[in-house]
Nucleic acid binder design. Structure first.
Lengths: 211, 211
DNA sequence: CTTGATCCGGAGCGTTCGCTCCGCTTATCC
DNA sequence: GGATAAGCGGAGCGAACGCTCCGGATCAAG
């Protein structure tokens, strides 16, 4: 009863707070291994608690997933920051490889972004970093001018499709697919002929997934 | 009792045979609209019959899906044949666009290929046509030598990911994604650095999906 | 027309999955 | 240590889905 309403949620009993953390850790692990389709029972068992406890800490499965989004965004942001240090406009390629590798190791991590509001500060910040990487790549002539940030989002979705399809048989082929995509980003005589997604459309894709 | 055992399945009563066709037509339509997740009840209703009838004609849902594979393969083959007539090595690009457009209009059509045996004659033939298109594209310098037929399969999976993600918001953006991919296939100074899938790996991906 | 094999509809079974409810336990405060 | 609010496990609910079963309808051969 010591915290004010301003604080996110009221003080939990020590055991309850601990279980909450155990649940988040178990969920992260189970989702990474099995994808978001993993059952709540398995997550609870992984945390050493019952499903009842899970549902006392989180209103539903989606809310539990939403809490994990921050981790993904933080990891992506870290990757983007690392990439910023890379010279000659190669940072963008480095970032695309790193974020794809992360996706490959964490099954449900991209669809997990479903539930984040589009004005999530971490997301906004990540987008800024990616935009900077893109601008740098263009400046060094490694990416053509007509490529937009939304094209990079689309590329993520595309790589996700390859990873999901091939993970069991050839867990590293997405790298070849990414190489082809990167080659497609290079300056070229042939324009692309088709309009990119607008930012609003990307947001709607992310949002529509929640319902 | 007039047909010999050589014929696929014994003579059905007229009403039964008719219902069988109605079910296939309904399944094709419902799967195209809703994807393979559509319930059997809806398919039966679409055909104007009960679920019992569906299960008397087909041992299970997967078998019903498998019967539809032939349609998809036939359509793809037709597209590939059309593409063969296109000059200057542009046939491959035409085929990729056509098959992607077909996927965009028929939700479950690519995962539907799950259930086809890898030695399905129609599949073998389709692969030959695609290989010819690829060779022609290389001959005209529109695609680099290191690209393999399995890369094209991987590209299909990738486009499928984009289509599934964006269909509701921007049903045509997959075209931009494909344009980037095609640009990535063009001759280039930079080699791809990563090995392609082997044919056997592609087959295993298709096969593993059935279980 | 009769007769019997064939086929039909749809209620309902078993399973899976997200989620709730309740009798018992435990941390925390005095 | 005693009181009590908070927390706990897991049986079980309801919905969704693939599939089965059976009493009654229907086609077609004689």
């Amino acid at each position: 009863m010591s915290t004010t309403l301003a604080s996110e949620h009221r003080q939990l009993r020590r055991d309850a707070a601990e279980n909450r953390e155990l649940l988040l850790a178990a969920a992260s692990r189970v989702f990474a291994e099995q994808g978001l389709g993993a059952g709540v029972e398995e997550i609870a068992r992984g945390a050493g608690v019952g499903v009842g406890t899970l549902y006392r800490r989180f209103p539903n499965k989606d809310a539990l997933i939403a809490e994990l989004v921050q981790d993904v965004l933080d990891r992506m942001s870290a990757l983007a920051s690392e990439a910023t240090a890379i010279p000659d406009g190669r940072g963008l390629e480095h970032y695309l490889e790193g974020s794809s590798a992360y996706q490959a190791d964490h099954r449900g991590c991209l669809p997990r972004l479903w539930n984040t509001p589009v004005d999530n500060p971490a997301l906004v910040q990540l987008r800024q970093k990616i935009a900077a990487l893109l601008a740098d790549a263009k400046r060094h002539g490694r990416v053509r001018e007509e490529i937009t940030a939304t094209d990079l989002t689309m590329i993520s979705w595309s790589i996700r499709g390859v990873i999901e399809t091939t993970r069991d048989v050839a867990p590293e082929v997405w790298r070849r697919h990414l190489a082809i995509l990167i080659a497609g980003l290079r300056p070229s005589q042939e324009p692309l002929h088709h309009k990119p997604l607008s930012r609003a459309q990307v947001d709607r894709v992310l949002q529509d997934r929640s319902g």
